[in-house]
Design a protein around this nucleic acid. Sequence first.
DNA 1: TCCATATGTGCAAGCGTATGCATCACTCCC
DNA 2: GGGAGTGATGCATACGCTTGCACATATGGA
Lengths: 352, 352
Amino acid sequence: MALTTKDIARLAGVSQSTVSRSLNNSPLISDETRGRVLRIAEELGFELNANARGLSTNRTNTIGVIYPDDYLDHDVSLYLGSLLTQLRKILEQWDLDLIVAFKENRKTGVDSIKRLVMRKKVDALIIVQSHTDERTLEFLKKTNIPCVLLHFYQSSKATEGIDQVYADHVAGGYLGCEHLIKLGHRRILCVSAEGEEEYEQRRCGYRAALERYGIAYDPALMLNGDRTFQSGYDLVMDHEALFDSVTAVFVHTDIMALGVMEALKARGRRIPEDIAVVGYDDVELSAYFQPHLTTVHQPREELAAVACQHLMELLSSKRTVRGEQIKIQPSLVVRQSCGAHLVSTMVHDTDL
Amino acid sequence: MALTTKDIARLAGVSQSTVSRSLNNSPLISDETRGRVLRIAEELGFELNANARGLSTNRTNTIGVIYPDDYLDHDVSLYLGSLLTQLRKILEQWDLDLIVAFKENRKTGVDSIKRLVMRKKVDALIIVQSHTDERTLEFLKKTNIPCVLLHFYQSSKATEGIDQVYADHVAGGYLGCEHLIKLGHRRILCVSAEGEEEYEQRRCGYRAALERYGIAYDPALMLNGDRTFQSGYDLVMDHEALFDSVTAVFVHTDIMALGVMEALKARGRRIPEDIAVVGYDDVELSAYFQPHLTTVHQPREELAAVACQHLMELLSSKRTVRGEQIKIQPSLVVRQSCGAHLVSTMVHDTDL
DNA sequence: TCCATATGTGCAAGCGTATGCATCACTCCC
DNA sequence: GGGAGTGATGCATACGCTTGCACATATGGA
């Protein structure tokens, strides 16, 4: 049926092991022999059988990317693109393949991570954007498979010894709030979200900035939405008085921020003249929406690039120490919604 | 090191083949024996080695999804989400894994499709959103691997015998244009794009609608952009007179449409009062942008679902005939930018 | 001349699973 | 009671590759 090394061997007049060594660039083979073998293999479009190879070497040349169950979340899908782009460079260079899986099989309840690892389908893992439970973390440590947690910082006894690459959401929260303070705002409403730790971290940053500039934290100025456009819209409509009482809003999700702006506009408030808005994430939409949204940029590309590179170091055994934690700094993208372009005393980079 | 069927066999006091048969639900094994084996395997968290399995059965339980090289294109990434979502259901049900690859390795120039197939890393393929060259098509036919082309209709001698699932872009072009005609517009500017066949098909639909309603096609009313927001913006600025001379624009990409609208607004034209705009794609942004964009909906979910289901039928040999072509119809999503809500004579479903 | 060394190549044993065939223990029936 | 039939299990081989080791040939030095 399909060609095998044995076939190539016969055609090249050498043994099967010589073919194998030639195709794997073993230094044992003479240039002449290797050349002959490679030429024949090339002509016939021969490729080594990955299963047989994996069985022999116990390596699959495949890495797994694990997504959370609630994939459809907008902020999750955001990472897919950057991650794939970064991964691609590495994959191409090292001749690796990429298996994408979701954390858990909803039907059978099977943990995909364990499944992929135990079945020896992957050599390494990138676990994206989700809280990883202790049992899984322990499993990862026990198997000692090269692995990177890519997301927010997750700290517990269980994460010790697991490599993490994450954005500094506390710093992001601080940045956004500080920017508004520097523009002269004192009553800054914070619209955050529940569920993941990153939002708690952003709230921490918000409070830290207030404290740093001597503004008392007012719990009444803290709302939580569910991260959707509609949720942002509804919050404004449900808390009219509250929104009327502040001069600025710091929304912890761009999509929600767009909803907030839409509602504010519908209520006749001008942005940023009447009320300043700062978002968080820097999604594609935020650059197009009117007014262009000032927001905290998630360093997606950098996170993905660093995670990939780090993983390759683990895979190639260049790095043996485990449990590194790499923190990436977010940055502020100043556009129009914060009103910085109306204030002459600040230096900034308005775009568009 | 890792557990094998032999280990389980020893522990269960049976032979290795009995373990293998038990785990594969062979009817040859008695319920009692199978129960004992499964219990032990379960307790130890045993999983069959995928490589050994693949070597033996010549099946990998993995399917490949191939993306075009220019992945970063917004319209390409749009499909990733729906496709993954649909795929997930199937993958979970059949215990399959998913390898994502790009058409060609930029560095080595290696064709990923051939690589994956020849190395026996996948059992089936979904090729997404890209023109597939003849050599590859011939290769696919020769290997006879279950395969679905998911995108626009591609017709040539080479595609005969290859299964295709695609959206009817001609119909979509017709729909968008017809809608504007029914709203009373006669001079309808068409902003299309170059590169892929789907745009040519959309232009065909546009012209067909004009013809159907007895409007002469005017080549001067046809522009091409490069699918970006900026491109849409620039076209307006570069062709002020042209845009001033029409009452409606049909833009073949939502993102470009948003750019067009932004530019029109900047030039003081009101949408839809002064000029109506209809887009194509129905991307997430289009529902949020002001005014909410009327657009031709790409049936992404349906395309993905149909493609997946079709592939599974091929894989399970339920379907033996090859070369089916399944055409999915797009639909029109009427929002605000077309001005339909201002016209009393038309029935429509304005949302928001 | 002969041995030590280096350089290529071949042999054969795994890697872990699936599966055709043989085997064995029963039951059933004439 | 013996043979046929049935159901459950084990034996042994194949799948295609990698790799340690043995072997063959060429090279250099004493």
